[in-house]
Amino acid sequence: MEVAKAKTSIYVDRELWESFKRYARSRGVEVSRLLEDVIRDELLGEALLRAVSELVSSEDYEVDFEPVEPSGLVSELVRVLRDGRSGSVS
């Protein structure tokens, strides 16, 4: 089954468009195909958010965490997060 295609014109930042075309070439994908994939992903993400919000109200879940202030090296931050998580596992 062949999908009907629509030719369109859009205005995009020139440097962004050139980068997008280079990216498509580097992946071995046609620009049109990659753009279609990006649009599909965006629409799918939006549909997924709508579906989840219909199934779950804000009263059904709660995000509970204590933020960690970053300081020093990234490895120190990872260690703090890992230590905090290991103390909550039974």
Rank of each mutant, 00 (worst) to 15 (best):
W17Q: 15
E54Y: 02
R22Q: 15
L49S: 14
R79T: 05
R79P: 00
R40D: 01
S53Y: 01
G45S: 03
L49E: 15
V12H: 07
V78P: 00
V29Q: 07
L77S: 01
F20R: 14
G84M: 06
E18G: 13
V80H: 08
S9P: 08
A51E: 09
K5I: 05
S53N: 07
D13E: 08
R22G: 10
M1A: 13
Y23C: 11
L43T: 10
V29K: 11
L48D: 08
G72E: 01
S9R: 13
Y61D: 01
M1T: 06
A6C: 03
S57H: 12
S71T: 04
R82V: 01
G87M: 10
S86K: 14
E42D: 09
L49Q: 12
V78S: 03
R27L: 11
Y61A: 07
G84H: 02
L55N: 04
R40P: 01
V89E: 15
R25Y: 12
I10Q: 10
L34P: 00
S71V: 05
E42W: 13
V78T: 06
V78K: 03
V52K: 04
L55P: 00
R33P: 00
D64V: 15
G72Q: 02
D64H: 09
S71F: 04
S19K: 13
W17D: 08
R40W: 02
L73E: 03
E66H: 10
E69N: 06
R27A: 05
S58N: 08
L77C: 00
R33H: 06
S32M: 04
F20C: 07
A47L: 11
V89A: 13
W17L: 14
E46V: 06
E42A: 09
D64S: 09
S71R: 11
S71G: 07
E69K: 05
K21N: 13
P67Y: 01
D37S: 05
K21F: 04
I10S: 11
A47T: 10
R50C: 05
A4E: 12
E30V: 05
G84F: 02
L81H: 04
E2M: 15
V31D: 02
Y23I: 07
G72L: 03
V12F: 04
D41L: 11
D60S: 06
E42G: 09
T8R: 10
V29D: 07
M1K: 14
S86D: 15
V80E: 07
L16Q: 09
I10K: 13
E42F: 11
A51S: 11
R25H: 15
P70I: 04
L44Y: 08
D60N: 06
A51W: 02
A24C: 06
M1N: 14
E42Y: 15
V68C: 03
L44G: 02
K5S: 03
S58I: 06
E66N: 14
E18K: 14
R22I: 10
V52T: 06
V12G: 05
E46H: 12
E59K: 15
Y11K: 09
V31Q: 05
L49A: 12
L48T: 14
S58Y: 02
V89T: 10
V52W: 01
L49I: 07
E62R: 15
